[in-house]
Design a binder for these strands. Structure first.
Lengths: 261, 261
DNA sequence: CGCAGTATTGAAATTTCTCAAGCCGAGTGG
DNA sequence: CCACTCGGCTTGAGAAATTTCAATACTGCG
């Protein structure tokens, strides 16, 4: 019985601890508060919605595996992807304080999520400021990513724009320990990339072709392989500051830059 | 001696109370905590920067008068405006938890701001969860506005895009009590609008021309006049949900919709 | 093998950008 | 009082980028 309920939910606590730890310094009390959260888990199929624009959820989602996406649905029915989320991300903590969803959340591939009742979070945050600050901070990093996406989609030319998105995804996956060799999962087709970047499918295809031709990346079957990180970063004008990932540059797991080959 | 230090700083407290009250329910203790903040104020000239990308501020800004803007500076030197802020807004609370600024903050016209030491905020938030939640929520609304801008700049055609920005500015100004007749201040030229919308100056000019020709708005000398709110909203596909402004529809100061004339 | 979804490519249609010129109103100094 | 300047607005027109349309591959899977 793989992924028995117990082990999955402890994985959720693990991820919560990791995420909170990335966003602040936790005291033992804070950690035990997290461990005390009563979480449910849920499995999702590709394309499945978790919450929809207009919903008023009473739980917060944390990604355990797979990739989730936030998106807006326009009057026209058109879809605009807003952000992408991997293990450890909490794509809708904001629903704790903003009751109505202004966007939807779906799974891009098969995914598992943990669900934490708002009630539990509210109580824990009221009691333990450090915890509150950590989760607040994580939403602030989200916001920084939105800002970056706004600039990316508004001010960068198509190839650069695509390259920047790929940099971001790869860099974040790397931080979450989700890369192997120079590859990570990126379960989106070119249509969806277009809906994220504000470009047509055809433009995405052509931009990708260029990046591929220059030997920077390879993207196929939902797997992104970075062939020349240094140059990709250069082309994209990618500066990861806005991700607010402590890079502990010297001597640790994170040795991204300067690994062009 | 107009705008004596005392009256200006009490105006800051007033705005803080208003903003916090909009984002949560405050107890008397919370209110007195706010009133106890030791704030400084500062006057700014048009175009002047308050904080820059890369800075590590130790105070948070609240707008007292005038308009501020956040912006990114790209590698190329190009500028991308991210958001616009009016009285009561706190455009950089995030710096409390994200130490390094990923963007800059400047005044668009002459403006006054209040400065609240991070230290004071941190202490108050640690002690009073309701206060913390209120300010957290205000940053979440910010984030919702970023998402909306992302979608606007990525998925909407030029005229619609401009219309949407105008709707947002007008609606927010209205909520802050900064409209007179059907007008509010919008101290930006067409170049700057372009840098906000990801459009060239020429495109902005042509989009504006269309809106004007259709009798929807008039924008000149930094004053935006909304001539036909209903149709403007329609053209823009503007749905203010994402602003999370309690609209207390029946019988209050906010009677925006259905006032097409 | 054949289908369905996805990727790729060409080429016309459209939008947007760039370049360039002219206009307009406010402020300045002769 | 007027000529001049400066910033910002407006407009035309060719250049460039992007989108749209359409046809053709490719790939994993039943």
């Amino acid at each position: 019985m793989p992924n028995a309920p117990h082990s999955l939910s402890s994985r959720v606590h693990q991820l919560l601890l990791w995420k909170a730890g990335q966003n602040g310094t936790l005291l033992p009390d804070d950690e035990s508060a997290i461990r005390a959260f009563r979480v449910r888990t849920q499995a999702l199929g590709p394309g499945e919605d978790i919450v929809r624009q207009g919903d008023r959820p009473d739980v917060a989602v944390i990604v355990v595996s797979g990739m989730l996406a936030r998106y807006h649905t326009l009057e026209s029915g058109e879809r605009q992807y807003i952000s992408f989320h991997i293990a450890g991300d909490m794509p809708d903590v904001q629903s704790l304080l903003l009751t109505v969803m202004d966007h939807s959340l779906c799974a891009l591939d098969t995914a598992e999520v943990g669900l934490i009742p708002h009630q539990e979070l509210r109580e824990a945050f009221s009691r333990q400021p450090a915890l509150c600050f950590a989760f607040w901070r994580s939403t602030l990093v989200d916001a920084a990513i939105f800002r970056s996406a706004l600039t990316n989609n508004s001010a960068r030319a198509s190839t650069t724009r695509l390259a920047h998105l790929l940099c971001e995804q790869y860099y974040r996956a790397r931080d979450a320990g989700l890369t192997q060799d120079q590859s990570c999962s990126l379960p989106m087709n070119q249509t969806e990339l277009g809906q994220a970047l504000g470009m047509s499918l055809v433009s995405v295809n052509r931009a990708l072709k260029k990046l591929r031709a220059d030997g920077l990346v390879d993207l196929r079957g939902g797997i992104l392989s970075v062939l020349d990180w240094r140059r990709l970063q250069q082309v994209a004008g990618f500066d990861p500051t806005y991700l607010y990932i402590a890079d502990e540059s010297e001597g640790s797991r994170l040795r991204l830059s300067g690994r062009g080959e």
